[in-house]
Design a protein around this nucleic acid. Structure first.
Lengths: 221, 221
DNA sequence: CTTCAATTTGACCATTTGGTCAAATTTCGA
DNA sequence: TCGAAATTTGACCAAATGGTCAAATTGAAG
């Protein structure tokens, strides 16, 4: 058995076919996220997604059997990104620093991934018919964990008592809004959203209000 | 000319025909708001709206020529409701009281009108293609006015300097979320949203954090 | 070079949708 | 009561949509 054969037999697929397939799937997913974010699930059409991906419509269906599958994949990916960031929120940190990092990080995600963020918001708005399972398991678990973090902080006298769940709801709403409701942000600020400075200013004021609101000092750095 | 004739000639239409028409329009608008909130603009069908209003589809088209017109009417009505509430926000009040009232009032609107609220959120999410004009005029004017209120407070030393526009964005996001993303609220709280207690708790904690965050005392009453 | 699975693509289809229309019916004012 | 205007409603239609399919093409492995 030659070394080459050995390498090619490893379980993780690496053939050129597989690599090309993954690239094509990503290309289609990007196009789909864009179209879903513009038109919602029902408003989006496979034809438009195909045009955006610069592929014949039948080819899109070759990679993703149904519109629903395509949509669910977009949702799962952005949810995973958010859960991953929440994971950095731990009890061993200083509450003020942890919150500041979380707020800034979350707003940064809004800035970098506004498109899937809007797709997700649309899904929630309609009662999460496609992603309800993942919400009730993965998200709920993560929220429970963070609630424990706040409980720990409270017991150690590091933070004033606060309802961690309502606080998370507030933080999500306030951070997501810069991605999801860009038109509203434009209108209110009389400026072009999407600009880095807008996100920066939003993150800073939100951090300051929330930290002071919880009786914490705003960390310098 | 008899008195009756006099009365019936007044410009404000009051004939039984007109009253019946208005009742029918409201009935259709309610049904439409419901369906739009569930399915979005494209996902909603005139057939479903007709069923919800318990009318033949052609009859819905008799009162509202197009789906777009029906949708725009739903949007305008809820925006007017919000602008009306913002109008109570004036410089002559105590900042803490004004903010507390605004937050509680806004969350109350979320509780009472969750359905049109979601329709509006959906519209914003997709870039406000139908209501962009009203945003750029009515909403912008009202925001400018409130920015002036904060400026006045600051000059009188009644409040610490704060970016009123970013603050409004935060308040809207945090109050709307209880109506718009009910599924998420359910998941996070492990409870049924829509319950009055949830809105009450959310309003109180949000008020406390924001007021303290701005260096204000939370009013007793 | 051959082979064969993977991929590409145009043509096609059943279903759904917003909207129209004309005929039937109801209702209000005179 | 009568006539005109407003309303109601079933039937219908053109356009759009998600998805299918079979024939053609490609490209990696032996």
């Amino acid at each position: 058995m030659s070394p080459e054969t050995q390498i090619e037999n490893r379980p993780t697929k690496r053939g050129p076919r597989h690599v090309a397939r993954q690239a094509m799937e990503e290309r289609i997913l990007d196009a789909a996220a864009w179209v879903f974010s513009q038109s919602g699930y029902d408003g989006a059409t496979m034809a438009e997604i195909a045009i955006k991906a610069d592929l014949p419509k039948a080819n899109v269906h070759y990679y993703f059997k149904s519109k629903a599958g395509l949509y669910s994949t977009v949702l799962s990916k952005i949810l995973a990104t958010w859960l991953d960031q929440m994971n950095a929120f731990t009890a061993d940190q200083d509450p003020a620093m942890a919150l500041k990092r979380y707020i800034h990080g979350k707003i940064e995600l809004s800035r970098v991934y506004p498109i899937p963020s809007r797709v997700f918001a649309n899904e929630l708005l309609h009662g999460a018919p496609f992603i309800d399972r993942e919400l009730a398991t993965d998200l709920r678990d993560e929220v429970d964990r963070i609630a424990e973090v706040f409980k720990t902080w409270k017991e150690r006298g590091r933070i004033r008592p606060v309802d961690a769940r309502h606080l998370l709801i507030t933080l999500w709403a306030a951070t997501q809004t810069y991605a999801d409701f860009e038109v509203q942000v434009d209108t209110v600020l009389r400026a072009k959203a999407g600009e880095k400075a807008v996100f920066q200013a939003g993150a800073e004021q939100l951090t300051e209000i929330v930290l002071r609101g919880l009786g914490l000092e705003v960390p310098r750095e």
